[in-house]
């Protein structure tokens, strides 16, 4: 049962996931390319090689977080997309409790998250092995892959939960988010004319602090994503 559902999930997700998988393997390689075959001369006053490696790691670190978010989102949405198309009638007619059906789907998606992370880890490890790092820097393929795994799993769980509901629920949730994003600030500014604490309230900052800082649900996407660091 679980294997069949995993196969189905992969069928639904494979084409959108293909470029993501390529990126998951290739971006760590690109992150370390500055350090492949590099030589560092102690007689040379400039340690620009180390700067190039850390700068490259910092730039690509951002892309790792984005790839994790995209991979998790695609897997979360595609878990339910085929069911949605025929209104869940097939799934509801199967002789399996609904919670078990959801759990099997979630488990299948988690396996696909693991596979994506494995590919990422392979790219990161390969990049680390090929890199010639100055003695001040080290590679973190293990820690980075763990970070990628948890980030992808978080995005997957969030979109899985959202996509499992009705289109109406998803529309309401996403509509509220978009509405806040677009109209929230001007509305607060307008209401601030009548009650000043509202006008002083920084919605963007509050949302960022709640979601990303202070151990919020999206805080995993922040933090240190550098493959090479001190």
């Amino acid at each position: 049962m679980g294997i069949q559902m995993l196969k189905l999930h992969w069928r639904a997700a494979r084409w959108p996931m293909l470029p993501v998988l390529v990126a998951a393997f290739g971006l760590p390689l690109m992150a370390g390319s500055a350090a492949w075959g590099a030589t560092y001369s102690v007689d040379h006053l400039s340690a620009s090689g180390a700067v190039a490696v850390t700068d490259g790691a910092a730039v690509f670190g951002l892309t790792f977080a984005i790839v994790a978010a995209i991979a998790g989102s695609i897997l979360g949405i595609s878990a339910w997309s085929w069911d949605h198309r025929q209104d869940h009638v097939y799934a509801l007619s199967l002789p399996v409790p609904r919670w078990k059906y959801s759990a099997l789907k979630f488990g299948g998606g988690t396996i696909l998250v693991g596979a994506t992370t494995a590919l990422f880890a392979l790219g990161a490890t390969t990049s680390s092995l090929l890199a010639n790092l100055p003695a001040g820097l080290r590679a973190y393929p293990g820690a980075l892959s763990l970070h990628f795994l948890i980030a992808t799993q978080t995005a997957f769980a969030l979109l899985f939960a959202l996509a499992s509901g009705t289109m109406r629920t998803a529309t309401i949730v996403l509509g509220c988010v978009m509405g806040l994003a677009i109209f929230g600030v001007p509305l607060l500014d307008f209401l601030g004319n009548f009650w000043s604490p509202l006008g002083d309230f920084d919605l963007v900052r509050f949302a960022y602090a709640t979601l990303v800082e202070n151990d919020g649900p999206l805080s995993i996407f922040a933090g240190n994503w550098m493959l090479f660091d001190v």
Partner: peptide, 14 residues
Amino acid sequence: LQRVGYVPERPHLF
């Protein structure tokens, strides 16, 4: 449902 065969009004296959 393990003992029931069901054919809906509209096909529900993938």
